[in-house]
Nucleic acid binder design. Structure first.
Length: 325
DNA sequence: AAGAATCCCAACCGCAAGTTG
DNA sequence: GCAACTTGCGGTTGGGATTCT
């Protein structure tokens, strides 16, 4: 397994491709196919290394390449597959016809990753940031906005704020517990994911909620992912807040790193009453870290059922949610 | 208008798996 | 089984384009 020496060779051109070079490469491949990439540059009359030619062809010259901005649908697809596959750009690209792994990687690094971070998600796990203090600005903003919305006296609000802080901590705690359980379940040493129901035993999840955990993708699901056989529609519905695609981009969002109000309902007097977060826009407590699970499972033949955490509203009782939102 | 800052993406680099002799 | 070679992948970067001050 030696390293490829091709790019170390002297005298080979590097850097941006000229239209003439593109033309030569295109004509050669269309006539003869690429064959051996290493031999191609000489045969095509190019002063480039084979690697450079391959890259140019696969990322730019291939006739089936789709150009232009990513659609919202493509964005969703990337997010979903990334939450499952992690940074497996080539695997993700297989599910986006006409898009290259490089393009997807760039799009992820320049747009999607930032979006997730701005929304308080960990871009690697697709879950809300786990550190409570990182979420503090959001909580503070939440509290302030609530005050504006409700126009209640501060004393009353302070008391409510305290309750909310407790609830937020509770929420965080539950989340951490779930994550811990998940990591235990995914560790090769654990026999199966069936350790999750322990949560039920300690009274954190009621049976109906657990039932939602049992609607799980089969182990075959993960196998099919690694085998690249899945289509987007078969993925677990890893829930990105509906507000995700409404998030301001770049600079706008930087100034509003907290969750911005996205929906409004009619108040009693007919004036719109802004909600901080709709239930649907709550960040998903959601996603079992399937990206890691994939490796763990492939290494340990996990035969237990896997987990599909549901969205927030189903995890908490209505009272909790209605109080929190 | 101009310089600084930031964004964006094509291309490079290095690693690892697969293939061949 | 081993080493040389090829291919593919993911991370990183250079520099042009765009936006901000």
């Amino acid at each position: 397994m030696g390293r490829s020496p091709c790019c170390d060779e002297n005298g080979l051109k590097k850097g941006p491709w000229t239209p003439e070079e593109d033309q030569k490469l295109m004509e050669y491949i269309q006539k003869h196919g690429h064959g051996s990439w290493r031999a191609l540059p000489k045969l095509a009359g190019l002063n480039r290394c084979g690697k450079s030619c391959r890259l140019r062809w696969t990322n730019y010259l291939r006739p089936d390449i789709k150009r232009g901005k990513f659609t919202e649908e493509e964005e969703q697809t990337i997010l979903r597959f990334h939450s499952v596959l992690g940074n497996k750009w080539s695997a993700i690209a297989k599910h986006l016809p006409g898009r290259t792994d490089n393009e997807i990687k760039n799009f992820w690094n320049t747009h999607l990753k930032k979006k997730l971070i701005q929304m308080g998600f960990d871009p690697m796990t697709h879950r809300p940031r786990t550190d409570f203090f990182a979420a503090l600005p959001q909580l503070i903003a939440l509290a302030n906005l609530r005050q504006l919305v409700e126009q209640r006296p501060w004393d009353d609000h302070a008391a409510r704020l305290q309750v909310e802080a407790v609830q937020a901590a509770k929420l965080q705690c539950l989340q951490n517990l779930i994550q811990s359980a998940a990591s235990i379940a995914t560790s090769p040493s654990s026999s199966s994911i069936n350790t999750i129901p322990d949560l039920e035993q300690i009274g954190l999840l009621s049976p109906p909620q657990m039932s939602s955990l049992s609607s799980l993708p089969s182990p075959n699901f993960l196998e099919s992912i690694s085998g690249q056989d899945i289509v987007a529609g078969q993925l677990p519905d890893i829930q990105i807040p509906s507000s995700f695609f409404e998030q301001p981009t770049s600079n706008d969002a930087n100034q509003n790193s907290d969750f911005t109000p996205k929906s409004s309902v009619e108040g009693e007097n007919g004036t719109p009453k802004t909600l901080l977060l709709s239930e649907n826009s709550l960040p998903p407590l959601t996603d079992f870290p399937i990206s890691n699970l994939g490796d763990a499972c492939s290494a340990s033949s996990c035969d237990g059922s896997s987990i599909q955490f549901t969205s927030w509203p189903e995890l908490f009782d209505e009272q909790f949610l209605s109080e929190f939102v």
